[in-house]
Amino acid sequence: MTMTLPYHRVNVLTGTKAARIIEDPSEYAHLIKRASRPLLVLGPRILTMSLGERLLAEYAVEIAKAADIPICATAHTQKKLLELGVQPASNYDLIEIINHLKDPEWRGVKKEGNHDLVIFLGVRTDLGEQGLSTLKHFAPHLKTMTLCKYYYPNASYSLPNFRKDEQWKEFLDKLIENLKTKEA
């Protein structure tokens, strides 16, 4: 098997446990729906990256709404999310939310118990990769998933490196569609 390299080579994994690459949006949707307490962690790149005509932040909001996932708004993303009419459940910064997620006894952003699936979107790839490394090693009680257009080796589930933004857009559109439909 050839090894998949992350897009940004500073994130090359030197280890033995790497993410499962998933290219099928329905499989992603299934994993999200199956989770009992998912959490969507948003980083500041949702404020500057666009897909088609829309800001990534708008995609983030749609995903959160489609699957009723609480949001942790890291960095300074909260302000934009409020403008888009969404109240984040938490505004811990990235490292702070990860520090909490490490603790299996933590009550989660909704005080209902720790999360079993943590989905990341819009974090710098290097910082994101480091945060995922923390969870890979110290949070065996949860799974991590990334929605950015790059491969993240330290996640549990990752997208591949999409060569074209259109592929990524298509994935996200289909993911949202899948999340909106009820599973049998």
Binding site: L13, T14, G15, T16, K17, S133, T134, H137
Partner: peptide
């Protein structure tokens, strides 16, 4: 709070050791 940059240790000739 630790964020390992690498899962392995290669400090001595017992290794590399996988510390995942």
């Amino acid at each position: 709070f630790y964020a390992p940059f690498c899962d392995l240790c290669c400090f001595c000739t017992y290794g590399k050791c996988d510390l995942t």
